[in-house]
């Protein structure tokens, strides 16, 4: 079966005066229809950029410098801007981080909803309006027929994110890229929003690319997870396997830094050092300066994704001839 989204060796460059910065370096993954693929990593690891590159919304001067993106078999990274526009919203929806800034403050939310639907779907204005009310009800806005006339500032943060979700889903896309959908929200609201996103996408059979740095959200929501480090995928695999048996030393470090209810550690483990800057990514494995288990090969050769139990990890420890297996 062709995957819904197939990203192969994606490279994103930022040309600057002092040379080209490679922000995404040969990232490959695929998403099946209806699947939820989580993306975790530190700030600047390239999670959001990967999402932006897929929908063709990289901010200038960033550009795709290599690789390919296929959506149900059709190559979309080379499409003309107008063809790509028709895919955004209609085939791939996007949810952004901060609901306080993602809604146009000067347009009623009903207008923003109907405009999105009328752009992509063959509807009459009356039908679009009826559906807009239904969408508001589906995302849990009470008194939807009246609230549709409201302005964005008349909603709370959590409600606004509900409206954003309605906007992202209203043209019935096959895939939603949710870029830190709960990060800007109150902790008490986060769970509600994630549950809502899960329910709606499951009902519609929408696949989700869930970008977050919250492992808890991933554990609860995602089918598979990709761990990103310095613009590369360090490890990718089923959520349970990655959490219980992390195969990459970086993933292992990440999991160790999450407090658990069972083991009340005095101090949380942390990974020494910090992620390299884009202009100083080490040769070989980008993680090797911080890795306790690095050996000669890690300093020279960059590892590709290697099978490691149930997951795949970009780590030479999993090469057949590795010293410590």
């Amino acid at each position: 079966m062709t995957p819904l989204l197939d990203v192969r060796d994606l490279i994103v460059d930022f040309p600057t005066r002092r040379g080209v910065l490679r922000a995404i370096d040969r990232v490959s993954f695929d998403i099946a229809p209806g699947e939820v693929l989580g993306f975790v990593g530190e700030s600047g690891a390239g999670k959001s950029l990967t999402g932006a590159a897929i929908v063709g919304l990289l901010t200038w001067p960033g550009r795709i410098a290599g690789g390919s993106v296929h959506l149900t078999g059709e190559r979309i990274d080379t499409l003309r801007p107008d063809r790509m526009r028709r895919i955004r919203g209609r085939r791939i929806g996007t949810i952004f981080q901060d609901p306080l800034t993602t809604l146009n403050p000067l347009l009623r939310i009903g207008h923003q909803l109907t405009e999105t639907m009328l752009t992509h779907l063959d509807l009459t204005a009356t039908e679009a309006r009826r559906r807009a009310v239904v969408w508001l009800e589906r995302v849990g806005i009470p008194d939807a027929p009246r609230r549709i006339e409201s302005w964005p500032h008349e909603f709370s943060g959590g409600q606004r994110q509900r409206v954003v979700i309605a906007l992202a889903l209203c043209a019935e896309p096959d895939l939603v890229i949710a870029d830190e959908p709960t990060t800007a929200l109150d902790v008490s609201v986060q769970a509600q929003i994630i549950t809502l996103l899960k329910t709606l996408t499951r009902e519609n059979g929408t696949a989700v690319m869930l970008i977050t740095h919250d492992m808890g959200v991933i554990a609860e929501t995602a089918d598979r997870v990709a761990v990103m480090y310095a613009g590369r995928i360090a490890e990718i695999g089923p959520v349970a396997a990655v959490i219980r048996h992390p195969a990459h030393p970086y993933t292992d470090g990440l999991m160790g830094s999450i407090p658990t209810v069972k083991h009340k550690a005095e101090r949380l483990r942390q990974i020494d050092g910090s992620m390299p800057r884009l202009d100083a990514i080490p040769a070989g494995c980008a993680f090797h300066p911080r890795c306790a288990r690095a050996f000669d090969r890690c300093l020279i050769d960059r590892p590709g994704l290697l099978a490691a139990g149930a997951t795949q990890a970009a780590c030479w420890l999993h090469a057949p001839e590795a010293p410590h297996g």
């Binding site: 526009r85 955004r88 919203g89 952004f96 901060d98 809604l103 403050p105 405009e115 999105t116 752009t119």
Partner: peptide
Amino acid sequence: DYIRFARARGLTDRSIHFGH
């Protein structure tokens, strides 16, 4: 952000520039 979001919803350039 709201212009980025308007682009991400695939609205036309005309609507984004003049309407939003």
